[in-house]
Amino acid sequence: MLLLFQIFAGLIVGAVLGLGSAFLAVDRGIGFEAVRAGSWAAWPRAGEADADPYTRASLARTGDLPLAGGAGITFSAKTDDNGDILRADCVYQLSGRMPATQWWTLTVYDELSGRLISNSIQRYGINSKEIVRRADGSFDIVVSRSARAGNWLPVGKADQISFLVRLYDTPIATGKSFQDIRMPSIQRLECRS
């Protein structure tokens, strides 16, 4: 009787651990081939036939269209530079410059659904054509609920948010050289309490 119970308990615990760890691994986006720069991460192999199984599983779960095979690369950030989760009710400043690329776009998403967030002026992203740069090519972008002067990206009502930077026609994607990639810093300025 005890043996039967032990086998049964073992099956349950094993199943919970196995499924739970698989869910966490996919949900958190653990891929062995992640390229990290500050709080940004990219999975340049996503969509390729020989991508690691975790990267493939993450992609199948989110169901988005990967930029693969030299068409570009996508960097995402879920936290600021201090490691705190990005929240819609905080104000963030992105500073610096993008890696070498022909075009780039920065977009704010609802982190939980992967959807755009409705906002007062229906602007969901900013791109390399629209950005106002300093003489040395660097820029600041403020992401906040209320309007700001300069490069401003509005956020609507949401809980957790994420930033995605897509580099289109970038030598990084074609040459697969991921060393020394510098992405803009993400500083939290203030939060509504």
Binding site: G10, L11, V13, G14, A15, L17, G18, L19, S21, A22, F23, A25, V26, P53, Y54, R56, A57, L59, A60, R61, G63
Partner: peptide
């Protein structure tokens, strides 16, 4: 239990692209 959890973990990860 650990062996079982490992097998389930790996097969889940491999199955997701087919069943998502």
């Amino acid at each position: 239990v650990i062996a079982l959890a490992g097998v389930i973990h790996i097969s889940t990860i491999l199955a997701i692209p087919r069943i998502a």
